[in-house]
Amino acid sequence: MGSISFRNVDKTFGAGAIKALEGINLEIADKEFVAIVGPSGCGKTTCLRMVAGFEAASSGDVLVNGKAVTAPGPDRAVVFQQFALFPWKTVRENIDLGLRNKNLPAAAREEAIAGALRLMSLESHADAFPHQLSGGMQQRVAIARAYVLDPVVLLMDEPFGALDAQTRVVMQEELVRLARRNPRTVLFITHAVEEAVYLADRVAIMTRRPGRIKEVLDIRTVRQSENWDSHPKIEDVMDLESFVHLRTHIWKSLREEKGFRDV
């Protein structure tokens, strides 16, 4: 089980100086993949950090499985935009740390690591250090490190934002495969509209600061009726009329928010 709830959440930084979020309400069901899009600085990262336990709400409640979040923990794995791998640990050791923290026996850890490496096609890089890998590979390690924890929810903050266009596409396709094969609750932050529509079950659109949720779009019905997942390539999905329609809708909604820049 891994539901996430935002109930009337406000967030103010620095003694009332910056009101980042205002009246956020969002319910994410177990095994649902929700993407948040919005202008930069609207508070997307702040939402995610509150679920992760790095930041507390100024008022309102942030709940995971109905329980208030109080501190970070391995039940809520985070994939950071800048990877945040430990540079002094090899790929294997980076993935292993969370498992060691769970006090799992060595054999179980070995097996879990092997599985995670296979999942992300990292087998031949197990003993490399992060700086020896490309950005795309590093982000695979970060995803493997998160997945191996078998977290209740997966929190991803613009995980592909730092990647070049080609690598980004590969990672998006991979994530879709992963999410469909092994569904779990995902909160995915992005400011790339197409990425959100391609990946998510639902897309929440935020207003500019102070961030509020303006609209939530359900993608699932269209995805299923138009059979998006039968196309292995992202560009084929992006060509479909149903995709273009949704994308344009979100796009327009965001355009109304001054200060929105798309990549």
Binding site: P72, P74, V78, A84, L85, F86, W88, N101, K102, L149
Partner: peptide, 28 residues
């Protein structure tokens, strides 16, 4: 780097291990 500490905390790293495996190598 704060994000490395956050990564460590997110992975459930206990204090002593955090000092030995995150702070010490980062401070090396």
């Amino acid at each position: 780097e704060p994000r490395l500490i956050e990564a460590g905390r997110m992975l459930g790293t206990p204090n002593l291990r955090m000092i030995l495996e995150v702070l010490l190598p980062a401070a090396a």
